[in-house]
Design a protein around this nucleic acid. Sequence first.
RNA 1: GGUUCCGUAGCUCAGUUGGAUAGAGCAACAGCCUUCUAAGCUGUGGGUCGCGCGUUCGAACCGCGCCGGAAUCACCA
Length: 593
Amino acid sequence: MNIEQHIANVVFHAVDSLYGGVHMSQIQIQKTRKEFDGDYTLVTFPLLRISRKSPEATAQEIGERIVADNADIEGFNVIKGFLNIVLGSAFWFERFGEIVADAHYGQAAPTGRNIMIEYSSPNTNKPLHLGHVRNNLLGYSVAQILKANGHNVIKANLVNDRGIHICKSMVAWLLYGNGATPESTGKKGDHLVGDYYVEFDKHYKAEIAALVADGASEEEAKKRAPIMLRAQEMLRKWEAKDPEVYALWEKMNGWVYKGFDVTYKALGVDFDKVYYESQTYLLGKSLVQEGLDKGIFFRKEDGSVWIDLTADGLDQKLLLRGDGTSVYMTQDLGTALSRFDENKLDSMIYVVGNEQNYHFQVLKLVLKKLGYEWSDSIYHLSYGMVELPNGKMKSREGTVVDADELIEGMVDTARAMSEELGKLEGCTEQEAAAISRMVGLGALKYFILKVDPKKTMLFNPEESIDFNGNTGPFIQYTHARICSVLRKAEEQGIEFADCTSADECLREETEIIKSLCDYPNVVAAAGENFAPSLIANYTYELCKLFNGYYHDYSILREECCATKRMRLQLARQVARVIASSMSLLGIEVPQRM
RNA sequence: GGUUCCGUAGCUCAGUUGGAUAGAGCAACAGCCUUCUAAGCUGUGGGUCGCGCGUUCGAACCGCGCCGGAAUCACCA
């Protein structure tokens, strides 16, 4: 039912009957560029060897043939080696009728494929920052896109709740916290715990400096600093399940989870499964044995287990320490295996920053060598850092952009801007707050999701994120204006539910319909490439198209009743697609703004 | 040094997998609100697609080599 595919078939048959011996791969159909007349374009160059004619003559011949054989095709024109095919407006309005009748337009049929996507995966020693925001938005959006492609999606969060970094916060809290709690301080739990992580670092640095002043080397001082020794001792106690340490660990993690929940909710992301490393970190040891038995891994004199990947252009990689304890890779191998088994997964996607590219390269390779073919269906959705104008975010230098502050800042800016523009007149406080939140978050999410995940992106906190031009609010605004028109139509009692055609139509209208027809293709492409940016760009184009139309032609003041109804239908369908596509980015669209 | 990735307008980014004269937004300038919301619309200026060679009818896109930048190469996670 793909139109481009349909055209390709039509052309294929024409070319085959004219010249014979064609392969489908030689039929190159693309959308006609807007500076030319037509809907789809055939590139004739690949066909010249078969036609044995000039590009122009070939195009002419094929054009004549397809027009003669197909009622859908109204005409054609030839420019250089390009055959521009013109479909009649009747054709497009027929498609429009189909779209309107489809209540779930953009939702693909179920595929039965199970896909797990892991994202967020925070450490529990500090609050979420801008980098996490990019991760969360990407993960959630890709999950939405995969669902729209008909897959069963399991959103997973693997919380890194154990390790030396958590112990650092715990030690500092014991030493300097005076029993402070989120309740006693009025602080969000994750921020409170994060404060003690910073506190630890401060004292650690001071102790190192003192030891160095006493004549110790830097290296030595780092090892001997008392506060670090305490943290390490605490980690040992934790692993021995010391009741006191465990209770403190559970208490402080509990604070953090409460804080994270608030941030997740504000961002509008959620999870189907939450895994905790404290429960999974021992997985994978049996795999190590399996690898040893198969002779894929080897053991060094000290008992540690390794794999040699030098033949694959990588290094030797540690899989198990000499004392038998596991490392990151060990548990990731084990976790992957148990997830594939338990959930009957067809694919597993990890949304993890590009600093772990190497890790995932190794992970896939090791699983492959162990004979797990599903290793190929693991995809590392790698994304670049978010940088500030003066470089990377560094928590120690206090240059991190905190997620909660960022979100509230965006909402406040949206509120101020809305008020300045007088957009909130007549709104209740509740409505005003809801709109500001939608718009502020829409700006933030769109800003992040419209760029290619691979690229490191720049965020300038000084200049707040734009609300004009290629932005989330621009798209939300287009939606709100359409809603406004539809409300007025309803007030006037205009019925247009069954109306999908008119006697006459404008070029702009078929252009909009063409764009609407493209939506499922864009959803499919976004799913194949795990690329929310495709959705963002598509929606922006659709909005620009509609805004131009809206500006030049009135819907409600149109005199011809049939045309008016068709325009209302068209506007409503644009709004539906906007709402649908924005939901794939996790962006809500307001009825007014 | 090895591996992976990035380099497109002053700035932030697109570029539909090799097609036609490389596009948006921001910033600058000039216009458009007694007419469905001006967070909008229209126009002007702005480019050696990092550089070079190659592949072919055709390259921002593919290959090779440079230049510049990022990440990583832990018995951390």
